[in-house]
Simulated assay, not measured.
Amino acid sequence: MTRAALIACLAAGLASAALAGPAAADYPQRAITLVVPYAAGGTNDTLSRIIGEHLAKTLGRPVLIENEAGAAGTLAARRVARAAPDGHTLIMGNMGTHAVAVSQYRSLGYQPLADFTPIGLTASVPAVVVARRDFPGTTLADLRSALRAKPEGLSEAHIGVGSPTHTFCTLLHGMMGTRAVRVAYRGGSQAMSDLVGGHADFSCISLSGAISQINAGSLKALAVATSERVGIIPSVPTAAESGLPGFEVSTWNGLFAPRGLPPAIRDRLSAAMDAALADPGVQARLLELGFVLPTPAERGGEVLGGLVAREIPRWAKVLQEGGIAQE
């Protein structure tokens, strides 16, 4: 090794040690930005605000929620992937940004497995098939019949190609042999507004994003995509009970930092997230909204990384079979 190369290696080592040492000990040094890859008001946004509020208490610095919608969440993910790996910029990623997007976009601009440091799984939420309140039917079989009779006459609301709402309905159509007019919205609140207003006919949405409207009678819940009925809406049948066994899907959400995050900072963030999920108040709020909380053994960064690795090929198959072309 030349003298110049040796000096360069020593400098790199010192820089790395400095980052992992004092920087980690002093973390956080300023407010933390938690990027939400969708517009305000949706499931991911609600979860981020509840978790972020507790993280701020534990870490002693404000956690600023920043919504950056666009391209089904991938614009925000690309931004965070390129941010400094110092723990001050995080993203509440999900199955859309960190699994489905790999098969959806030719030029994604980031690699979910290579460009992020997974902190841990925060929560998942089952999908529910909902329809406008005056939809002429009450079951999944009714929806299937209506779609088959007039596929161009029903509109499906989703929040972007490759988003969980879009992917869930792609799987649903594939299993039912149906199609619809698929309408994209910038965020969950906008899609929900049109569903409640009767301007869209149905959607495959996260339960937490629809539970208040279901309970208020503003939406009809046709089926939940779970193996058993859900306690907060016990009268709503499962997809299997509705004649569609195998339609069991949920969107997971996880906290990610850019690649290269020092292990000490990663561990502190992971511990802070564990503290948030163990807090009775946080648990009560999330469970009431329909979220499913991971057990302590399911929360770690390694577990989240393994989940991402499994989900990428799973949803690639769904999109391929659904004929969803790459953008």
Results as ranks from 00 to 15, higher is better:
205 I>P: 02
184 A>Y: 03
207 L>Q: 03
170 T>S: 15
198 G>I: 09
207 L>C: 08
246 G>T: 11
263 P>E: 15
242 S>N: 06
172 L>M: 15
249 V>A: 13
272 A>P: 00
228 E>Y: 08
270 S>G: 12
190 Q>C: 05
237 P>N: 04
268 R>H: 11
232 I>P: 00
183 V>I: 12
233 I>D: 03
273 M>P: 00
194 D>V: 02
246 G>C: 11
218 S>C: 07
272 A>G: 14
195 L>C: 08
192 M>C: 08
228 E>L: 09
212 S>R: 12
264 A>Y: 07
269 L>P: 01
238 T>A: 07
175 M>W: 10
201 D>S: 10
187 G>D: 02
269 L>N: 00
188 G>F: 01
175 M>I: 10
227 S>D: 15
269 L>H: 03
196 V>I: 14
213 Q>R: 11
232 I>H: 06
236 V>F: 05
208 S>E: 09
235 S>N: 14
269 L>V: 05
267 D>L: 10
191 A>W: 00
199 H>G: 09
270 S>T: 09
186 R>F: 00
237 P>L: 07
200 A>E: 15
181 V>D: 15
193 S>M: 12
234 P>Q: 13
223 A>W: 03
274 D>A: 14
260 G>T: 07
206 S>E: 15
250 S>G: 14
201 D>I: 05
193 S>F: 11
242 S>I: 06
171 L>N: 04
258 P>D: 10
271 A>D: 14
225 A>L: 10
209 G>I: 05
265 I>W: 06
220 K>F: 11
267 D>V: 06
237 P>V: 05
198 G>M: 13
232 I>W: 09
204 C>K: 00
188 G>E: 00
253 N>Q: 14
232 I>E: 09
214 I>R: 00
207 L>H: 03
219 L>W: 01
174 G>L: 09
211 I>H: 04
250 S>N: 12
272 A>S: 14
233 I>L: 14
186 R>T: 03
251 T>Y: 09
195 L>R: 00
178 T>K: 01
219 L>Q: 01
179 R>K: 13
202 F>W: 14
179 R>T: 14
174 G>F: 10
